[in-house]
Write a protein that binds this DNA or RNA. Structure first.
Lengths: 212, 212
DNA sequence: GTGGCTATGTAAGTGATACTTACATATGTA
DNA sequence: TACATATGTAAGTATCACTTACATAGCCAC
């Protein structure tokens, strides 16, 4: 069980006084809680209880609750970047399916980890100007921009690539939210959407003017 | 200062013991707080303070915090339906601009009331099976479906109308989220998006197969 | 080893919150 | 006017975020 921040997990028995691995185990507990009860209804206290330490212990590793959430979000975004990169490797550069696969990865993440998805995007509210998060976000979106640029035969810094990538992002992002919020199913939109969405992305990616 | 639920506001001086209008004033206070500090960081206690009553008073009007939020969301959705209906009246049936105007109204709502937007969609997490909210949501989406069906010359219960309306919803919804989360601007997507989005909606609404 | 420095844990508080309970006071209606 | 009901208060419970003072473990120089 490798951890993306370098700390070692695995030794799950706590050794009397000193725990040895609290930070990582706290994040693990918080992630569980976020999925179980939502990002707004979990408490640091309960995460501490799950890790078998006192309610003050977490504050040796994190300044406050927000910092815990930020660390979790960073971890999740790292994983996201990793799985997107893995997906990229399965298709040749420029392939449309590469782009569609990225979208599917995004939607799958939301469906499989709705609590984390909410957290990642809900956190913007309280961490508005955070540099680390912004950088991580740019790295993620950058992957999409490059894939789109390659497909269109554009340079990655051509605004047209950003423009089209952004439109694809809105679709995938909107669908992810509506899905985890149950809106899609609730409104009778239960037919398979993946083909539909990739058809739309084909339109958006068609050569020609995107509406400048 | 008319209230959409029929209770009268306006007499803002509280009359000694009995307040006369607590429910409406609480909702007003909560809405302010939600915009100021976010849906997760407001407290019933503070709303009560703003309304000039004890912290126990709200519980004469609402069972718990969740019920307050639900009432607020219902109010917001009502307003949304009203303004969407108003927009509809400005364009002839079947007009594409009618549909685009609906989308713009949605995005404007998110931009102007990000706290409420977050609340409306964030609430699904805790009110998953709520009938009233589902019904209200269906009414809202129904407006879009009808406009799309009229434009395409389809019956409103044709699944193709729902399908296309849903795609438009994902775009508008995704863009709204990314905008209020600051992602759009953060990623350098600051060029005017309204034309771009309406160009995309034209693609989605074009006659022909949408990717069945 | 021993002494001491630092990292990491605990216990016991502080102040705020959601919500409850017992009681008080208006208001409307028989 | 009396009484039922609606609506408010005060005080209390349990929980939480976070702090402070103290304890212990690991580690390094010597």
């Amino acid at each position: 069980m490798a951890q993306s921040d370098g700390t070692q997990t695995g030794n799950s028995k706590r050794d009397a006084y000193h725990h040895g691995n609290l930070r990582a185990q706290l994040l693990e507990a918080v992630e569980q809680l976020v999925e179980e009860k939502g990002a707004e209804n979990f408490s640091i206290a309960e995460a501490a209880r799950r890790a078998g330490v006192s309610s003050a212990a977490p504050y040796r590793h994190f300044a406050d609750k927000d910092e815990v959430l930020k660390a979790l979000v960073m971890q999740a975004m790292n994983r996201m970047i990793e799985s997107m990169s893995a997906v990229m490797a399965e298709f040749p550069p420029g392939d449309v399916d590469r782009i569609n696969a990225l979208g599917r990865e995004y939607i799958d993440f939301a469906r499989d980890h709705p609590g984390m998805f909410r957290l990642v995007f809900g956190i913007s509210e309280s961490h508005d100007g955070d540099e680390d998060l912004a950088e991580q976000g740019a790295a993620t979106f950058g992957i999409v921009i490059r894939a789109v640029a390659e497909h269109l035969g554009l340079s990655a810094d051509d605004p047209e690539a950003t423009r089209r990538a952004y439109i694809l992002w809105t679709i995938v992002h909107g669908h992810s939210w509506l899905t985890i919020d149950g809106k899609a199913k609730q409104q009778g939109v239960d037919f398979p959407l993946s083909e539909m969405l990739s058809a739309v992305s084909n339109m958006v990616l068609a050569q020609g003017d995107s509406g400048r």
